[in-house]
């Protein structure tokens, strides 16, 4: 289980990247995980179809905050259209840790929020 909390995850949760809010975002979305109260908001600034700036804010467990932090790193400079193609597997691969079923929603909250803001998806990315 110590694997879950490997150094990269702890680094991101202690010193999150792209943490904060964008003053005049092109889209913004906030959601929470009702199971544990994790909360993530993501603001995005778009220029020529590209994510020019992306910031997140919120609070919650190390997994939810680290995954949101890593997600902002992944997506900065990418095309907005790529948000649609991003899958739950991509996010879990990026985290690179074994996530138990009870914690999957912590890991995917940021992705869910980003997709909700970009094109209105409100289901969990891993649920069909």
């Amino acid at each position: 289980m110590a694997d879950l909390y490997r150094e990269q995850i702890l680094d991101h949760s202690r010193n999150p990247h792209n943490f904060g809010e964008i003053e005049d975002p092109d889209f913004t979305y906030e959601d929470s995980n009702p199971l544990c109260g994790d909360r993530v908001r993501i603001d995005v600034k778009v220029e020529d179809g590209v994510i020019a700036d992306i910031k997140f804010s919120g609070r919650g467990c190390a997994i939810s905050q680290a995954s949101a932090s890593m997600l902002t790193d992944m997506m900065k400079g990418r095309k907005v259209d790529e948000i649609r193609e991003l899958t739950a597997e991509d996010m879990l691969d990026e985290l690179g840790i074994q996530i138990s079923p009870a914690r999957v929603k912590c890991a995917l909250l940021g992705l869910k929020v980003l997709k909700s803001g970009a094109y209105g998806l409100t289901d969990w990315p891993h649920e069909r």
């Binding site: 289980m1 110590a2 879950l4 909390y5 544990c36 994790d38 919650g60 467990c61 190390a62 997994i63 138990s100 914690r103 912590c106």
Partner: peptide, 12 residues
Amino acid sequence: VHPHDIASILDG
């Protein structure tokens, strides 16, 4: 430490 992280580590 968030309680879910506490519980996950204790689970381990």
